[in-house]
């Protein structure tokens, strides 16, 4: 067995393992950029995973399942949006409640789908790109859902930094008072961002039940929603860095599994700890106010907005 192909395959695996986290993290990034923290990612992902699977199983059409998963994630996030934006409820508590609720709903409704196979997304090699050396193996020999994320990353970057709505989102997350004074609809912007977060979390969940595996199992996210939350911070609220963070996280997992497969013993728990330690360190290094502004930590994160208070 040669080393070089294995390295390429490991990098390809990093992309695959990072994809469900990437979906959810991009969504959470939007919500947080607008100033709303949503700790319910895990719950939204689970509902997305189940609804995507249910729909695909019933219709035999994974794209329909994907659509349903996105819608389901959006619906669940609507609860959070209504509570925290309209009713100005505590975002931390509401997010935690959302995770409990999503775990419950998906587990309860998912009972009849345990141990039932369904067709999901098949691996689909992209024609021209897939044959490219290096890049082809790493990026273009996956399933369609992976390809869906590639345009999302620059799209989110462009949206956030180069368009009016993006500016509004950042303004609302940074200083809702000033945004409001400029005539930006704070509530509407936040609603849209939280719902986008739900949509993408739903897709991230569906990646697990439609692409990575083709099955539904209770709690099958196994903590990926919480990892997505960490990745948003690790990527300092920037779509490109968040994507890198998700791939890095996927890469650590892909690499450690392959090193094990080659017979190398690893201190797994210490290894799993490193991304979190690293995230805190990144933040410490990037603390100066100027740096903070540049990396774009939303100053109003977690704070409900009420006009004139």
């Amino acid at each position: 067995m040669e080393l070089w192909p294995l390295i390429l395959l490991t990098l390809a695996a990093a992309v695959r393992a990072g994809t469900p986290i990437l979906f959810a993290a991009l969504g959470e990034l939007m919500a947080e950029r607008s100033g709303v923290l949503n700790l319910g990612v895990e719950g939204m992902m689970l509902v997305g995973a189940l609804v995507g699977f249910m729909t695909t199983q019933k219709t035999g059409e994974p794209w329909l399942g994907l659509l349903a998963a996105g819608l389901a994630g959006t619906m669940v996030s609507l609860i959070h949006a209504f509570l925290t934006i309209t009713l100005r409820a505590n975002q931390v508590v509401s997010g935690l409640a959302l995770t409990i609720f999503g775990t419950g709903v998906s587990g309860f409704l998912g009972k009849p789908y345990i141990g039932v196979p369904a067709e999901g997304f098949p691996p689909t090699r992209v024609s021209v790109f897939g044959d490219l050396p290096l890049v082809g193996t790493i990026f273009f020999q996956h399933d369609p859902m992976v390809y869906l994320t590639y345009p999302l990353i620059p799209l989110f970057w462009f949206l956030l930094y180069r368009t009016r709505p993006g500016l509004n989102v950042r303004a609302v997350g940074e200083s809702p008072e000033s945004a409001d004074a400029m005539g930006v609809g704070v509530a509407l912007t936040r609603y849209l961002c939280v719902l986008a977060g739900g949509l993408l979390a739903g897709l991230g969940g569906a990646y697990l039940s439609l692409a990575y595996t083709h099955m539904w199992i209770e709690n099958m996210t196994a903590g990926r929603g919480w990892i997505a939350l960490a990745i948003v911070i690790f990527g300092t609220w920037d779509p490109v860095r968040v994507a890198l963070g998700a791939y890095l996280f996927g890469g650590v997992q892909a690499l450690q599994l392959r090193l094990q497969a080659l017979g190398v013993g690893l201190p797994t728990y210490l290894l799993m700890m490193t991304p979190y330690v690293f995230t805190v360190l990144v933040l410490v290094v990037a603390t100066r106010e100027t740096v903070r502004r540049r990396i774009g930590a939303p100053a109003a994160l977690g704070i409900p907005y009420a006009r004139g208070e």
Binding site: M1, L208, Y212, M220, R224, L257
Partner: peptide, 20 residues
Amino acid sequence: TNAWYDPATETEAANGLLDI
């Protein structure tokens, strides 16, 4: 995989073994 159940990680573990 260091977990009793985590289908995605189990999948990737299998992929890694197929890769080698």
